[in-house]
Amino acid sequence: MPVISAPQAFNEDDLYVDLEGIFEYPLFLKCEGFNFAGSIKLKAAIEMVETAERDGLLTPDSVLVESSSGNLGVALSVIAANKGYRFLCVTDSRCNLAARMMMEALGSQVHVITEPDPVGGLLGARIDHVQALCACDERYVWLNQYANPSNSMAHYQRTAPAIARRFPDLDVLFVGAGTTGTLMGCARYFRTWHRPVRVVAVDTIGSVTFGGVPGRRMIPGLGTSMRPPLLDESYVDDVVRVEEADTIRACHRLARRGFLFGGSTGTVVSGAMAWLARQEGRALTAVAIAPDLGERYLETVYQTTWVQDLCGDDVLGSQSPTTAPQAA
């Protein structure tokens, strides 16, 4: 049992759920939410803050500022509270209430953007707001998770090696695409590994990360309205796009077996099952990364009225988590 004095010092990195008894195909789900921030974003937050400290960008007077749909904001709130920094998170109206309340409980400020940019959507409007803050006060330090190489480096150094140690015969890895920090860090690691590993990105329909038409997305976490600067598609072997209705079905199917995961995890699981269904019975060692847990989604993904308003009355009547998978 570890004894810690800083919350970011604890992060369970070696827990997997075998999903074969719940879904149609064998899949090991790497659980990344068992830390004091509740998501995989703690790794990127630690790496970005510590790099900024080493580079001399942060001083006792600095105010950290970041655009986040929720999870990174919570992770930075944890670290800022522990290290004594002020932190301001710029989010939007899709951010879960629980995430906003957690940030505020940890002493952070939260600005909620409600009007999308005509081109960049809510993400573009959030970034414009961050840049305006930085322009008016030099104390603000924007870590910029969308372009910061430390975002992907955290997963190159920690997440991917942990998977490699546990699964030396890995065939395929499924990674959700948000900022693409996790995706690119893992993809670069496995590109030079001792055996070929297919890296499959899982995105949401309505996201423009891998092209396509922008559309409404109500579940925060994965997907973007602007192409992430970190993304290098040459490292990605395949892309699966998931409808939000299928995300919800996957989350509820997991919950019926006692596993309460977040919306990003439901998307990754649904996309992975859709991809595996097309492999014609090939025996593959497959791992998917579960970025988050489900407590922050109790008022949305797990709330019947919200689900019905978003997807219709019969969305939870189907047992299939992948009713309409789309591949890039």
Rank of each mutant, 00 (worst) to 15 (best):
Q279N: 15
D169W: 06
P168V: 00
F167S: 03
V269L: 11
Q326T: 11
E115Q: 12
L15P: 01
P149G: 05
Y25M: 06
T265W: 00
L76K: 15
L97W: 15
V172N: 08
E115N: 14
G56Q: 09
A328L: 13
I219V: 10
E24N: 13
E12M: 14
E53W: 09
T91M: 11
P229C: 10
V199P: 14
L293N: 06
W306V: 08
V202R: 03
S5H: 15
S108T: 05
K83L: 14
G38N: 06
S77A: 10
E280K: 13
M102V: 15
T192L: 13
R257T: 14
E233V: 13
L122D: 07
A328W: 11
F28Y: 14
D117N: 11
S318T: 04
H194C: 10
R241F: 09
C89L: 07
L19D: 07
E115S: 08
D14M: 13
P26N: 12
H155N: 11
D55R: 15
G84V: 05
G215K: 04
R139L: 01
G176A: 05
V287E: 03
M273N: 05
I248C: 03
W306C: 10
I4W: 15
A154I: 04
C89G: 07
R278K: 15
R278H: 09
E138D: 09
T192H: 11
V315N: 10
G312F: 11
I205A: 13
V315Y: 12
Y297G: 00
L231I: 10
N151K: 01
V65F: 03
V269N: 04
D246Y: 00
V239I: 11
F259P: 01
A177C: 11
L183C: 15
V3D: 08
Q319V: 14
S67K: 04
P229G: 12
G271I: 02
S225H: 03
T224V: 10
H129L: 04
A44N: 11
L298H: 04
A160V: 01
L173F: 00
E295S: 14
A250L: 06
G294H: 07
A132S: 10
I40N: 06
